[in-house]
Write a protein that binds this DNA or RNA. Structure first.
Lengths: 338, 338
DNA sequence: TGCATTTTTGCATACGTATGCAAAAACTGA
DNA sequence: TCAGTTTTTGCATACGTATGCAAAAATGCA
């Protein structure tokens, strides 16, 4: 019947100003930390604002200040609990400093997503990427726009891209060391994807450490970081005549799949017939169904480091990329024999 | 050394206009679907834009049009794979229509989050909530601002709040029916939280259907939708002298925990000594470690329904809340005996 | 009290895009 | 070719907030 029933536009600073009997700029200053405004005036304004239910229009603010308090998060796969966990951590840590996440999920791992350039349209303060890689063009655009890029858990050869990661090389070493110490003989590795530097480093640490003890020709299969891919890798590894008694997986998520296959399809006793180690220590790893030995990669610490970088680069409008390595440790559970 | 090395501001429509030899408004029209502009002019403009690497400033656009193409997603717990899945679905479906998600994670389930009011500051086009409830005040604010609220998988008694959910009551009925048909005798229910209408409906369906067969006094424990909460619930249920041989859980996530406890702590054979049914059919439910019988609640369909509502309400600037129920089905796996 | 200093205030304008309106240009048909 | 019609264009202004600058008010000090 009526045209815009009740949808009067939201109150603005001018409305508040009128009610409080001051100018619009005064209202603006009342909300700006450290602005020059008398205490009494501010109170009067906040009172008026409350009365009207005023909420600042962050789009307008962003336009004026050229920063949005929005951070773009590119994530490939929320189903992988590790990344879900990182997202959760980022979100809750960012909310404490008044920033929010604009979510970009990309269809597949490890590909560069053209959609990401649109993120820049939102004037985001930074771009945090997990398990996706920045394309050189994107990096260039971001550089031009002064938007820092931080990659969590992926390396980058592109200058100007910051990185945060766990102790990947050491994860491999420590896994190898522990498996050697516990008298395993035949080793195998389930890698992520061929292009993943993270997976590569874990692999290097593992293989190199084994080599020191004279162990060569460790079989490697690619699980592509997916559940089904890892299952296939496990099937290949476990059906060879020379079946491994120790499998190191480049991620917990894949390790779960390998565990499933070993136990249910091959009827193997874990850990007595085959031990399995993952990397990440996602919450599920401690669930009794998996009870997975794993090298931890704490999502909270990764998130914290990424945010630190973003804040620093934004406040100093610095262009120099930063790199932070976050410590992990081996968590011994029931999927490896003693 | 120099002040703002290379951080020239991003090109604007005016820059493009100058290069293309047209007015700023022409550039704007070149990007506006259905605007009045000659084909040749548009091409000239797009060419110039490409040359400059121009990206529209969505903040400015939002300010002018009063809509942002951003949808706020409030989610309590990304660790619960069901919600991670819903988020993933929403994100990928929204990207197809050029919209994006601003993520709000709240610390705890089922609480209303004061931070959410800030979402309105971003001029979001809609607010989608999963496993969190809109407070009446928030609903009022949204109504004033013309921002539709859609709750996924939670009921709401607040007028004007739309809802999307699975067949909760039927889930309980079907679970009860299947357990009866397969000769179970002693039943139990692991509920979510006391305030969750979803849990309540599943419970009602379950209890009522059992009552029809003369089964009364079904024990109920609250798992609070958390892994540890469900573990405690399972411990209580399984340590009674009259131990149940069939447990229905209000979510897969809790069912996993119950499975863990039954198998590892009580050394029970699942399904021969106790059968377990969940609700959701998250991807993990099909993993061999759990192999969980469950009543499905398809995340993709829920997301689709939610988006449908948002689009409809926005295009018609309608105020009438909508309610959609999405069909599910019982997926029989190895956690229930035949 | 009067002058110098500091604090607070309002004015004016900028941020980048969208759009109503009128002017200009491009068509149409005879 | 010309008048009438339609399409395309530019001008001007609006959206809501931030901020440099100068005016005004408040404060300090003698």
């Amino acid at each position: 019947m009526s045209k815009k029933l009740g949808s009067r536009r939201a109150p603005t600073e001018s409305d508040v100003a009128k009610l409080a009997g001051v100018s619009q700029s005064a209202v603006s200053r009342a909300y700006t930390k450290g602005a020059s405004i008398a205490q009494k005036t501010r109170e009067k304004i906040l009172q008026a604002a409350k009365e009207l239910g005023y909420q600042p229009n962050l789009m307008a603010r962003s336009l004026a200040t050229n920063q949005s308090n929005i951070i773009a998060l590119a994530i490939s796969n929320l189903e992988n609990p590790f990344y879900a966990n990182v997202a959760q951590q980022l979100s809750s840590q960012l909310r404490e400093i008044g920033k929010h996440i604009l979510l970009f999920t990309s269809p597949s791992d490890d590909e560069t997503d053209p959609m990401l350039e649109r993120a820049l349209s939102y004037q985001v303060d930074a771009l945090i990427m997990t398990a996706t890689m920045a394309s050189p063009e994107l990096a260039l655009q971001c550089k031009k726009a002064g938007v820092p890029i931080v990659q969590i858990n992926r390396g980058s050869k592109i200058a100007g891209v910051s990185t945060v990661w766990g102790e990947n090389h050491r994860a491999g070493e420590v896994a190898a060391e522990h498996l050697l110490k516990t008298k395993h003989k035949k080793f195998a590795f389930v890698a992520g994807s061929k292009t993943s530097s993270t997976s590569q480093m874990r692999q290097d640490g593992f293989i190199e450490h084994l080599a020191k003890s004279g162990i060569k020709n460790v079989p490697i299969e690619y699980g592509e970081y997916s559940f089904s891919g890892a299952a296939n890798a496990a099937r290949k590894l476990l059906s060879t005549k020379n079946r491994p008694d120790a499998i190191f997986c480049a991620s917990d998520y894949m390790a779960f799949s390998v565990l499933d296959v070993a136990k249910r399809e091959f009827n193997l006793n874990v850990p007595n017939e085959v031990s399995i180690i993952g990397v990440d220590d996602v919450p599920e790893a401690s669930h009794l169904a998996y009870d997975l030995t794993t090298f931890s990669q704490p999502a909270g610490a990764l998130a914290k480091a990424a945010i630190e970088i973003v804040e620093k680069m934004n406040s100093e409008s610095s262009r120099r990329a930063m790199h932070i390595e976050v410590e992990g440790q081996l968590i011994i559970r029931g999927s490896t024999k003693l």
